[in-house]
């Protein structure tokens, strides 16, 4: 299948620039990094506001708890590093010192998922969404492109309490426009269709759009939903998609256990059960290789989504 000719962009450039824009209007914003400020472009914030950026070195536990202390003292603290180090490395610090006291600590992490590529399994964080979404008070965002990452920064500063946002090292296709809305608890319908719903996050949104195009040539009208607000979920949009189509496929660059697909299945199983397939990283660790080649090897492809769509469609028909 031909990949669409989308423009690709660094998500981290948008991230760094959005923090600078935010910092200009809000002097309660502080940013922390862990020997990763150049990499995440939080160094831009440091150049603009040298006394509001704290690089604590390779000390993520310290970073998150310092962020908690800053948040207890009137600051809105952005703790930023690679997703494996900003989540699993510091899980109980987040749990006890951030989520439990419901503090405005915003954990923004790049380098999520398999597209980290050659660094291999130790750095390919495929469990973060599941870990973070199970914490009370925590909100979880998974933007699909750089523009959404920028909007997530501003959104995070507006909403109360803790929030986790995961994005990627790889350049991602630009799928949204600057004027498109981006809100907590809101999913976006990227393409209309009533036969099957493809609900995706991150890189898989572009692959869902490719899958939908191919499905259209086979007479299947797929709705594509960008489910960037994993917690809280957009119940209305998701339930409507389930009702209108009666068949749902989710896709995410994350383990199939506990991530966005799990969140959607928890909702649908309890409120409107329909045939459903979850596409994601199987229950195994990743491996080194070109990031997009690893995605393909693990079945995070438009082809897998088409196959899954056909499967849920036939189940729907069998039931009906």
């Amino acid at each position: 299948m031909n990949a669409k000719p989308w423009k690709v962009e660094s998500m981290r450039n948008h991230f760094g620039q959005a923090l600078v824009d935010l910092g200009r209007n809000r002097d309660d914003i502080v940013v922390l990094g862990a020997d990763t400020t150049e990499s995440l472009k939080t160094s831009l914030f440091g150049e603009a506001f040298p006394d509001r950026l704290f690089n604590v070195g390779i000390a993520e536990q310290n970073m998150v708890a310092i962020a908690a202390g800053l948040a207890m003292s009137g600051k809105v603290a952005f703790a930023c590093t690679y997703s494996v180090f900003g989540t699993s490395q510091v899980y109980n610090i987040i749990r006890q010192s951030v989520a439990y006291p419901d503090l405005p600590v915003k954990i923004f992490c790049s380098h999520a998922g398999l597209t980290v590529g050659p660094d291999g399994a130790t750095h390919q964080m495929n469990e973060d969404v599941g870990l973070l979404r199970s914490l009370p008070n925590m909100k979880v965002l998974v933007p699909c492109d750089g523009l959404e990452v920028g909007k997530a920064v501003h959104l995070a500063a507006e909403v109360s309490g803790p929030l986790y946002c995961r994005f990627s090292r790889a350049k991602f296709p630009v799928l949204t426009a600057p004027e498109d809305p981006f809100a907590l608890g809101k999913a976006t319908v990227m393409r209309d269709g009533d036969d099957v719903a493809l609900v995706a996050t991150g890189i898989m949104v572009s692959r869902a759009l490719e899958a939908a195009e191919e499905l259209a040539t086979q007479g299947v009208d797929a709705r594509v939903v960008n489910n960037s607000s994993v917690k809280p979920l957009d119940r209305e949009t998701l339930l409507r998609a389930a009702r209108d189509t009666g068949a749902v496929v989710t896709a995410e660059e994350h383990t199939v256990l506990g991530g966005m697909g799990s969140a959607v299945s928890e909702l649908l199983a309890q409120e409107y059960p329909v045939p459903m397939q979850i596409i994601g990283v199987p229950d195994i660790f990743g491996e080194s290789g070109d990031g997009f080649a690893v995605l393909d090897k693990y079945g995070l492809t438009a082809e897998s989504m088409i196959k899954a769509a056909m499967h849920v469609l036939s189940t729907k028909e069998a039931v009906a």
Partner: peptide, 11 residues
């Protein structure tokens, strides 16, 4: 090193 299928992982 670091290529898909190699036993020499990035880490």
């Amino acid at each position: 090193l670091r290529k898909l299928g190699s036993h020499l992982q990035g880490h």
